[in-house]
């Protein structure tokens, strides 16, 4: 349709616009990505490898994986439950619930960390009680997990809600009239219909969980080898002027981002093909 002369620009204008867009995107996206890898390898592969296998880097990777392994499943279950409640049922307060689900998007990550400090920190509401019972949340793994959960809270729900809204509930209704139980309906009808959207939401949630910086920074205490996640470890190295090591660790997260984008496009292409085969 872009070949019709009435609705497109002359060739020079077109190429000018394409050129400008390409320039903007390469300056903005490609250059920073490239810089990560160039800076990481600036002092050679030895420094690069050493940075990756240092005990504190490995412990940071472990902590990042642990936090994501808790936060992502929790928010996935929440996302499915919320989408089910909001899209398959009508109830009073539905609009309010929808905007509350989006709320964390408008909250600074730093505040997402701060609220937990106010609740569970040494001088927080439950601080004295936790101290009495010898429970540490802030500056420990539980705090990091709570901060990550807060920040990645809406991702899966946000992906599923528009999808399930568009699909409607006719298929579920059909399954009901055919005698299916709730679980049978969910597993055999709903889940196959939302699996790609769900995967997509989980990917985004995971990328954010592993990359979260601000919220985790507030609750972690920056104890190297103990409560540093990978992004925090990068910050510490950077602030100690170990630039190559910092960028070496950053390549891991850069690769994670590229992997996420790659899977995302693959999912999109696949679902698009399927969607266009449907009439």
């Amino acid at each position: 349709m872009h070949h019709r002369s009435a609705t497109t620009e002359s060739a020079p204008v077109r190429w000018l616009l394409i050129g400008l867009a390409l320039l903007a995107l390469s300056l903005f996206l490609l250059l920073p990505l490239l810089a990560v890898f160039v800076e990481a390898l600036r002092r050679g592969t030895d420094v690069f490898c050493a940075a990756l296998v240092s005990p504190s880097a490995l412990s940071a990777v472990r902590l990042t994986l642990t936090a994501a392994a808790v936060a992502v499943p929790l928010n996935t279950v929440f996302g499915v439950a919320a989408a089910w409640a909001v899209t398959k049922h009508q109830f009073r307060g539905r609009a309010l619930l929808l905007s509350l689900i989006d709320l964390p998007f408008a909250v600074s990550p730093v505040i997402a960390g701060l609220v937990w400090v106010l609740l569970f920190g040494a001088r927080g509401w439950f601080g004295p009680w936790l101290a009495d019972h010898n429970i540490q949340i802030i500056f420990e793994l539980p705090g990091i997990i709570l901060a990550t959960v807060f920040v990645t809270f809406p991702f899966v729900a946000r992906e599923l809600i528009p999808l399930m809204e568009a699909q409607g509930s006719d298929q579920e209704m059909a399954a009901v009239t055919l005698g299916a139980s709730g679980w049978q309906m969910f597993r055999r009808i709903t889940l196959p219909n939302i699996k790609w959207g769900l995967l997509y939401g989980v990917l985004l949630c995971n990328a954010r969980a592993m990359g979260e910086f601000g919220a985790v920074s507030v609750v972690s205490g920056h104890i190297r080898g103990k409560t540093n996640t990978l992004p925090l470890h990068i910050e510490v190295l950077y602030n100690e002027y170990q630039f190559s090591a910092a960028f070496a660790c950053a390549t891991l997260l850069g690769l994670l981002a590229l992997l996420t984008l790659g899977l995302k496009s693959a999912v999109e292409q696949f679902t698009h093909q399927r969607a266009s085969r449907r009439i």
Binding site: P32, F213, A246, F247, L253
Partner: peptide, 10 residues
């Protein structure tokens, strides 16, 4: 998708 800390340093 790119973690903010990575975006920051790069």
């Amino acid at each position: 998708a790119l973690p903010t800390a990575v975006a920051g340093i790069t």
